[in-house]
Each structure stands twice: as structure tokens, then as C-alpha cells.
Computed example of a mutant assay.
Amino acid sequence: MTGWRERLDVIDALEAAGWTSDGVYPLEILRMGEAAFAIADEAGNSVLATGGWAVDFPSDVPVLVVVAACLAAAGQAGERLADVIQLRPEGAQR
């Protein structure tokens, strides 16, 4: 299943990596330095913006890919994904 519920895993992982929310918008915007991540709509589409560019992630892009892109955009490429996101075998129940 993809969509906004899966994007909550992205929020959890980014918060674990130190990203913070300004708490102003209904769909949370998380920031780390100049990088910003937001869930764009209830379908789970999201966006990552930094340094004058933005990348749209359709809801079917895996959580792992979105988190890795966010960490790289914030200069946190040294963070181990397993430290900020629970990795589980494909098809495993949540």
C-alpha cells in the first residue's frame, strides 16, 4: 500500500535524523538546514526542496528512496538508513 500513511514513515525517519517541523501547516513540513520535505496531498505525493530546486515524489516511490534523497539533500548522506528507518523484508506486515 502506498499513500499518505506510508509517507508518515518518511516523517518518522526524518524526525529521527533531526529534521524539525515548523508546525504551521496542516500537512507537516520538515526542515533540516536549507532542505525541506512536505507531504503534498492526501494521496501521499510529496516534495523535497533545497538550493533552488525541488523534486516531486509520487506516492508510489518507496519510503527508502524518499528518505535517502532527503538525507542526501540535507548533507546527511553519512547517516545510516537503518538508524532512522525500520527496514523490513518486502511484503512484511507493518
Results as ranks from 00 to 15, higher is better:
G51P: 04
V47S: 10
L64S: 15
A40Q: 08
L27A: 14
D41V: 00
A17T: 06
S46N: 07
D56L: 04
M32L: 12
E34K: 03
L71K: 09
V10A: 07
L64W: 05
V55P: 00
Y25F: 07
T20C: 07
E15W: 01
G75M: 07
D56E: 05
L48D: 04
A43R: 13
D56K: 01
L27Y: 13
D12L: 15
P58E: 13
I29M: 04
D41T: 00
M32S: 15
L64G: 12
G52L: 07
I39M: 14
G51F: 10
G23F: 12
L30R: 13
P58R: 13
V47D: 04
I39H: 09
G52E: 07
E15Q: 14
A74L: 10
S46M: 08
D9Q: 08
L14Y: 09
G51Q: 11
A36L: 01
Y25C: 00
A69N: 07
L48W: 04
L8C: 04
L14N: 11
M32R: 15
R31H: 14
V65K: 11
V61K: 05
F37Q: 02
P62L: 10
V61Q: 04
L30T: 10
V47Q: 11
D9S: 06
R31L: 03
V47P: 00
G75Q: 05
I11W: 01
A69G: 06
C70P: 02
G52R: 06
A38C: 08
G33R: 01
L8R: 14
W53M: 06
A72N: 14
S21D: 09
A35L: 02
F57N: 01
A68M: 11
A69V: 01
A16P: 05
P26F: 06
S21Q: 03
A69C: 09
S59I: 04
D56V: 04
P26E: 12
A17K: 06
E42G: 10
A73S: 14
V66L: 06
V47C: 06
A40E: 12
G51M: 08
Q76M: 12
A35D: 01
S21M: 03
G51C: 07
I11A: 08
D12I: 13
L64H: 13
E28K: 09
V61P: 02
G33F: 00
V65H: 07
G52P: 06
S59C: 15
I11F: 05
P58V: 12
D60Y: 14
A77S: 14
V55I: 14
G23M: 12
E42T: 12
D22F: 05
G44L: 04
S46G: 10
V65N: 05
A35P: 02
D60A: 06
L14V: 13
A17V: 05
A73C: 10
A73E: 05
T50F: 11
A54P: 00
A35V: 02
